[in-house]
Simulated scan of single mutants.
Amino acid sequence: MTLAQLLLFLPAAAIVAASPGANNLLAFVNGSREGFLPAATALVGRCIAFVLMIAIMIVGLGALLEASELAFRIIKWAGVLYLAYLGAKMMIGRDNTQEGTTGVAHIGSVSALARREFIVAMTNPKAVLLFTAFVPQFIASDAGSSFTFQLVVLGAIYIAVEFAAAMGWALAGSIIRSMHPSGRRLLLLNRVTGAMMLGAAGLLATARRA
């Protein structure tokens, strides 16, 4: 790995990681409903998904997803349905665990939050293509190290950058929560975040392979 590689990769990775998307929206929602610490801890689920994606790409399955329209569509629509399910849950103010006195649904455990982070990441084909199309662009053939080694290092750096960016989204959500809005406003927040999640499902439904 060279310094020039890293200086080129880091700002590009930061822009990609900080951009609004299904996972960052979920981190914001978790922060606004559960607080910063649970939302931040749940990001472990997303990081685990990304580690699996790097492993998938190394064994060549990422190329299959990039080449196969059917595989892309299967994963994409699984993600669309799951995001729509989460959005509908938020819109009606109910969840599968517990509901506070304000009427705003709460997930109930960090493990449930992490599981949702994991599922949203794994069912987003664009996240898989991130490691098959974006990261390999920064691999240097003359860097003196193997393709696999560079891929692992750049992938690990990207996951760290993604984690930091997602912490920012979770913090933004938790700041809203810390303002102690009234029950009526909390319900409105629930509806708005649910609508945003449905919007993310709609955007994913229009996604096409690069």
Rank of each mutant, 00 (worst) to 15 (best):
H106D: 13
L25S: 08
A172V: 06
L61G: 10
D142E: 08
I54F: 09
V80G: 11
D95A: 15
G194Q: 04
L203Y: 10
F50Y: 15
L83W: 12
V135D: 01
G62P: 13
P181G: 06
N24W: 07
A67T: 09
I176R: 11
F28W: 03
I175T: 12
L70M: 10
I157N: 08
T2D: 07
L26P: 06
N124V: 02
M90H: 14
G79M: 03
S19A: 09
M90G: 13
G199Y: 15
A27G: 11
G21I: 12
F118N: 03
T101Q: 14
F28H: 05
A49L: 04
V16C: 07
T2L: 05
L188F: 08
Q98S: 13
L154P: 10
S19K: 08
M91R: 13
R116P: 05
E162Y: 07
T193Y: 06
S145G: 08
F36W: 15
A164N: 01
T132F: 02
F149S: 10
V59S: 01
A143K: 05
T206D: 02
G194T: 01
F131R: 03
N124G: 02
A205F: 04
I107T: 15
N30D: 10
A195K: 04
F72A: 01
S68A: 03
I176F: 11
A127Q: 04
L52D: 02
G194V: 03
A84C: 14
Q137V: 04
A88W: 15
R185L: 14
A200T: 07
F131A: 00
L188I: 10
F147I: 11
L83V: 12
A71V: 06
F131P: 01
L151G: 09
S32A: 05
M122G: 04
N190G: 08
S32C: 11
L129T: 00
R73L: 03
G45Y: 07
L187D: 02
T41Q: 10
A201C: 05
I48T: 02
L198Q: 12
I48L: 06
I56E: 07
A205P: 00
Y82W: 14
F72M: 04
T132R: 01
W77F: 07
A143I: 03
L43Q: 14
Q150M: 08
K126V: 03
G31T: 03
R191W: 01
L189M: 04
T193L: 15
V104F: 13
M122H: 03
A12P: 08
L64C: 08
G79P: 04
T132G: 05
F36T: 10
L65P: 06
E99C: 12
L7T: 13
G21S: 09
K126E: 10
A4E: 14
M196V: 09
I48H: 02
M122A: 02
A39G: 09
W77P: 10
P38H: 13
M196D: 02
E34A: 14
A12K: 11
I75L: 10
A156W: 05
A201F: 13
S19E: 06
L86R: 13
F118E: 02
V44I: 15
L130W: 02
A55W: 15
A143Y: 06
K89P: 09
W77Q: 12
